[in-house]
């Protein structure tokens, strides 16, 4: 008789996978490490997930939305039409970190540029907080990946494709070096919205207001 394989076991596998990918990245994590951590055999792991890449992509999807349902057919393959590179491509297009910033870069400077900056800072702050697990995983995955890491770095803090660099380059009214300004913004947003030690708790409204307010004043200048 075939023993039933409870789908709840998938939660344990996802937890083990997330911890493994965070610790060692994508290329250095093996299915056997994940299996050992989850307390299942490697064969069981392949019963649920067709490949390490499929498991990684579903771990990412679940970090984005914990309620997303897995397909019923096992083993589960990569999410529809997705590949590791497509997922990181989405990040590069600014969908992940800064949803409105890419649009703002293409718009002419509004009369209220100070207000626009404050809104974008606040939105980016919230986006980073909301997606912190996703970003942590993606970052850990590419850290040791010599092919993907340079592309990932190019659009994160201070990289040439970083949206804040483009934003300040398109807003000469701020009279700041686009690179220096982008780094100041990115370092502090990433730190306060997602990298601050977890024991200090999630960012409060007052903290967010201070970060946004101080950065805006610093960038608008005297």
């Amino acid at each position: 008789m075939v023993r039933p394989r409870p789908i709840e076991r998938v939660d344990g596998i996802f937890d083990a996978a997330e911890r493994s990918f965070l610790a060692a990245g994508l290329s250095r994590t093996t299915m056997s490490t994940i299996a050992r951590r989850a307390g299942v055999s490697e064969a069981t792991l392949y019963y649920y997930f067709a490949s390490k890449e499929a498991l990684f992509l579903w771990t990412l999807v679940r970090a984005w939305d914990p309620n997303v349902a897995l397909p019923a057919t096992l083993p589960v393959d990569a999410p529809d039409g997705q590949s590791v590179d497509a997922v990181f491509g989405a990040a590069r297009r600014g969908v992940v970190d800064y949803p409105r910033l890419a649009e703002a870069v293409r718009r002419p400077t509004p009369a209220d540029r100070d207000g626009e900056l404050r809104r974008l800072l606040a939105e980016s702050f919230d986006s980073l907080t909301r997606h912190r697990r996703w970003i942590d995983l993606a970052h850990a995955a590419v850290r040791a990946d010599t092919e993907r890491a340079p592309r990932w770095m190019s659009e994160t803090v201070g990289g040439p494709d970083n949206l804040w660099v483009k934003y300040f380059a398109a807003r000469p009214e701020f009279a700041v070096d686009p690179w220096d300004a982008a780094v100041l913004v990115d370092v502090n947003l990433h730190y306060f919205a997602r990298l601050r030690p977890a024991r200090l708790g999630p960012p409060t409204a007052a903290q967010r207001a201070t970060v946004v307010g101080t950065l805006a004043r610093a960038l608008v200048g005297a």
Partner: peptide
């Protein structure tokens, strides 16, 4: 401004510009 947050802002920013900037950025 929240004094604790500003203190952290100054520390994090100074630290980054003075230290991490050297090696971690595709400059």
């Amino acid at each position: 401004l929240d004094a604790d947050v500003v203190a952290e802002l100054l520390l994090v920013s100074s630290t980054f510009y003075a230290r991490t900037w050297r090696t971690d950025l595709p400059v």
